[in-house]
Amino acid sequence: MRLVVVSAGLSVPSSTRLLADRLAAATAGRTSAGADVEVEVVELRDLAVEIAHNFTNGFPGRKLAAALAAVTAADGLIVVTPVFSASYSGLFKSFFDVIDPDALAGKPVLIGATGGSARHSLVLEHALRPLFSYLRAVIVPTAVYAASEDWGAEGLPERIERAAGELATLMTGLSTPSGPAKTEKAEKAEKDEFTVVPFADQLAALAAR
């Protein structure tokens, strides 16, 4: 399985990257595949110029194209951003603005953030979770926020392990072989179930009753 980590940290070393690495290690350790999990880290600070150019010319550079391909092909995704002005960083948002809108549909995603104060912890719920819901990703229930005072304190390791376990479960479940192929009759019934009936036709049917 392929686990891709997107870190939007800007400094070196970065608390954002530290949290991302801990989440990745915990997730890899919780999957049934164990050592067979391939972890790839995408550092957005290295892609800042190419992301900006993509907005102006519509084409990703070589490094950005490779990062977008890795995210698209991942079996699971960990995304971590520092908090800027009570939300995700502009670089973080810009990366997910240039990715194909359908690339994350159905993909398990663990969201995380770092900040200087615990007051920013709700950024996970009012900013990150809506963003990835819009992209139709499958977001794990437990999100992980790490304030400066959380490092070395009780609670953070437990949240990391809980979130990692949830992501590993989703990755393993979505990577299992599919069941028997659907019959032609079942496929037709499924298509009929989701056939879109124009609103005017629905009103006409109601009027005829």
Rank of each mutant, 00 (worst) to 15 (best):
M1I: 13
L3M: 10
A8D: 09
L10M: 09
S11E: 15
P13N: 01
P13C: 03
S14G: 03
S15M: 09
S15Y: 09
R17W: 06
L19S: 01
D21R: 14
L23W: 04
A25D: 13
A26P: 03
T27Y: 05
S32T: 13
S32G: 15
G34Y: 03
A35D: 14
A35W: 04
D36S: 11
V39N: 05
E40S: 13
E40T: 14
E43H: 14
D46W: 07
I51P: 07
I51W: 09
A52L: 12
T56C: 00
G58L: 05
P60Y: 09
R62S: 12
L64C: 06
A65N: 14
A69N: 14
A70I: 13
V71E: 13
A73K: 15
A74R: 10
L77K: 14
V79K: 12
T81E: 06
P82M: 07
V83C: 04
F84G: 02
S85K: 15
G90A: 07
G90L: 01
L91G: 03
F96S: 00
D97Y: 12
V98Y: 01
I99W: 00
D100Q: 13
D100H: 12
K107V: 02
G112F: 12
A113Y: 08
S117A: 15
H120C: 00
S121C: 05
L122W: 05
V123N: 00
V123G: 00
V123A: 01
H126V: 11
L131N: 07
F132T: 01
Y134N: 11
I139L: 07
V140W: 07
V140Q: 04
V140R: 08
V140I: 05
T142F: 08
V144Y: 08
V144S: 05
V144R: 09
S148K: 13
E149L: 10
E149Q: 14
D150I: 04
D150R: 05
W151T: 02
G155E: 06
P157F: 09
P157D: 01
E158N: 05
R159S: 10
I160A: 06
E161H: 09
E161Q: 11
A163S: 15
A164L: 10
G165Q: 10
L167W: 13
M171N: 13
T172L: 07
T176N: 09
T176Q: 15
S178A: 15
G179A: 13
P180K: 10
A181N: 12
A181F: 14
A181Y: 11
K185H: 11
E187F: 12
V197M: 06
V197N: 00
P198L: 04
P198S: 01
A200G: 02
A200M: 10
L203A: 10
A204W: 08
A205F: 12
A207F: 15
R209Y: 10
